[in-house]
């Protein structure tokens, strides 16, 4: 059976909130190392990869591999009943047809309990190759969101150019052009505002802003976001969580004919 307790329901609430507009039905794959999810959007352009490691739960127990087939809209309805600070316990039998969720308030003796019906989901899994990216940019997640939303007002696509001079996000639209350039920057007092650019070779890639703006819904999970690029391969956008847990998004590039 599965028993996994989070000290703060907000972690799961934020994760589900960040991905529910990209994927509707998906499996939460549970094993002794934790709970993982890999799902593509309907157009097969974007992929979500979540790993909530066993260490992120206290306690965590999972005797056998269990796939929890969940409709994220339904899960959202149930999670809305949890306060951010509630402790959240997930429970399921070995061959479950429902997922039990318990929310416990720390402030008082209120306990709420829900059972969510599960579904059989035949999910297509993709093998994601280990990639040495040519450019790895770490920046405040709020800054990345701002750049993406600002540029989306002008264009459907953004071109990301990473060079020794910095990283430039630029777009061309019917009403005009826009560009934002960031350089490496260290803030000793507020490291969450740091911008770090690691580069082994220059990169230039174009992506759909619609998807990037969607990924930015995960900004609530982490002050910083890491974006990894190599020419002509999908972009990786990673929000790191505590205990090596993470939420990653991959986005296929737009390439000239």
């Amino acid at each position: 059976m599965l028993e996994a307790k989070l000290d703060q329901a907000s972690i799961l609430k934020k994760v589900v909130d960040a991905i529910k507009d990209l994927v509707q039905d998906c499996n939460f794959d549970c094993n002794d190392s934790g709970i993982a999810l890999q799902a593509m959007d309907n157009s097969h352009v974007a992929l979500v990869s979540m790993a909530l490691k066993a260490e992120s739960f206290q306690p965590y127990r999972c005797d056998r591999n269990i796939a929890l087939g969940l409709n994220l809209t339904s899960l959202t309805k149930v999670l809305r009943a949890a306060q951010n600070e509630d402790m959240l316990t997930l429970r399921a039998e070995d061959a479950p047809d429902s997922l039990n969720l318990v929310f416990e308030s720390k402030a008082d003796d209120r306990i709420s309990e829900y059972d969510l019906k599960l579904m059989d989901i035949d999910q297509e899994h993709l093998g994601i190759p280990e990639t040495e990216y040519a450019a790895t940019i770490t920046l405040p997640s709020s800054e990345f969101r701002r750049i993406c939303t600002d540029l989306m007002a002008l264009s459907e696509s953004v071109t990301i150019d990473a060079s020794k001079d910095g990283v430039k996000f630029s777009c061309t639209g019917d009403i005009g052009n826009g560009a934002v350039t960031l350089r490496s920057h260290t803030n000793v007092d507020k490291p969450e505002l740091n911008v770090d650019i690691e580069l082994s070779e220059p990169v230039s890639l174009t992506f759909s802003l619609k998807y990037l703006v969607n990924f930015c819904k995960a900004s609530a999970l982490s002050h910083q976001v890491k974006i990894c690029l190599s020419n002509e391969v999908p972009l990786l956008v990673e929000y790191a969580l505590e205990n090596q847990s993470h939420l990653r998004f991959y986005l296929a590039p737009k390439i000239g004919d």
Binding site: L47, L126, G127, S157, K254, I255, D257
Partner: peptide
């Protein structure tokens, strides 16, 4: 002109 690629081209079956 650029064309949106899909992930299947880059990520194979495991």
């Amino acid at each position: 002109p650029t064309k949106q690629q899909t992930l299947g081209k880059f990520f194979g079956a495991p």
